[in-house]
Amino acid sequence: MLALGVSGLLAVLSGLGSGHLGVAVLLIGPVLACARLDARRTAAVAASSLILALVAGAASGLMVTPGFGIEFLVLLVGGTLAVRDAARHTADAAALARATEVAQASQNAILRPMAVEFGGIEVYARNRCAVQGASVCGDLYDVVHTPYGVRLLIGDVRGHDLDALRATAATIGAFKDLAYLTPGLADLATALDARLAPELDAEEFVTAVLAEFAPGEVRIVNCGHPAPVRAGKQVRLLEPLEPAPPLGLHPKPQLYRFYLTSGDRLLFYTDGLSEARDANGADFPLLERVGDALAVLSPSDALDTLYAMVSAHTGRAPTDDIALALCRPTSMVTPSPAARPSNPAARREP
C-alpha cells in the first residue's frame, strides 16, 4: 500500500507539474516494493507505476515528447530490475528458511527428549535452545548401555550455528562408536578427543562430562565442563580435584569415583544453568535450587521446574542454551566382570 500510494502521489504531482517533475520518479514505488515484497507483488506495483506514468503524461500533454519517452523507458527498465531483485531475495529467504528447517529437524533427531531406564538407571534428558534467532544450539547429551555399564555424555559445543550442529553430531557419533569398545572411562575421553580433534577448527572445542554407573557408585571424567550435582542426604557438586581442558584441546583426564545410593539423584547440566545471572549479576543459586527441585518432584517435573527457576532468577527467558540430564538409580545390581573399575587407583571421594 505504501509503494502504491507513493506511486500515485508522484503521478499526480507529475501530471500537474507541467513536466518539472518527470515520470521517472515513479520508480520509487517499485524500489520500495522490492525491498519487502515478493516478485509478484513488486511486478504489480511496477505495472501500476507504468500505467500511472501514461496517465500523468497524457494529463500534462507531454506523452509525445522525446523526454517523456526516455523517462518512460527508464521507468520500464527500473521496474524490471526491481522485480528481478525481489525474486532474488525471495529465493534467498526461502533457501535460508529451508536450511534452517533442515538444521532444526537434524538437531531434533540428534537430541530427542529422553526418558529411559536400563541397567538399573533412570535417565531423563532434554534441552532448550534459547538464543534468539539461532537455528541450532551447541548443547548435547546421549546415554548408552554398554558391557561396562550405563554410560552418559553431556557436553557443550562452542557456538550456535551449523558448525556447532556438525560438531554436535560428530561428538555424539564418536561417543556411540567408542563407548562400547573402550573399557576405561578416562580412555574413552582420550579416544573421543583423538576422534574429534581433526573434526574441529582451531578455535572449536567441546566441554564434556562422561559418567559411568556401577553398583554403589558413579565414575566421572570431567573435561572442562560444569560439575554434576548429587542430591540425596546432602546436595553437593561432584568436582574433579584437577580440572582438565575440553575435548579438542588434548586433555589428560582422570577418573573420579563417587558413592551413589538408591535415593540419590544426579543432575548433569550445561553452563546455561549454572551461569544464569539476574539483573544484579548474581549467579543462579545452583545447589539450593537443585536441592529444592529434586527433593519432592518427579524427574520430568523437576526438569521443568528448573527451567522455570532459571527464568524467574533472570527475570526473562534464558539467553543461553540449557541441557539437563537427570539420573537416578532404581536398583543396585552386581556388576559383571566387564563393568568392574578399569582403574583401581582412581580417586574416590572421602
Rank of each mutant, 00 (worst) to 15 (best):
G149L: 03
V150T: 15
R151M: 12
L152W: 07
L152H: 11
L153V: 11
L153I: 15
I154D: 09
D156T: 13
G159M: 01
H160I: 03
H160W: 01
D161Q: 05
L162T: 14
L162C: 02
L162K: 03
D163G: 13
A164Y: 03
L165I: 09
L165E: 01
L165V: 08
T168C: 13
T168M: 08
A169C: 14
A169K: 09
A169L: 10
A169M: 14
A170D: 09
A170G: 02
I172N: 02
G173D: 07
F175L: 14
F175P: 07
D177A: 15
L178A: 08
A179W: 03
Y180M: 13
P183I: 11
G184M: 04
L185V: 15
D187T: 15
L188Q: 13
A189R: 14
A189F: 13
T190H: 05
A191L: 07
L192P: 13
D193L: 03
D193G: 06
A194C: 08
A194K: 15
R195M: 06
L196N: 07
L196V: 12
A197M: 05
A197R: 15
D201W: 00
V206K: 11
V206T: 14
T207Y: 04
T207W: 03
V209G: 11
L210G: 12
A211Q: 10
A211E: 07
A211Y: 10
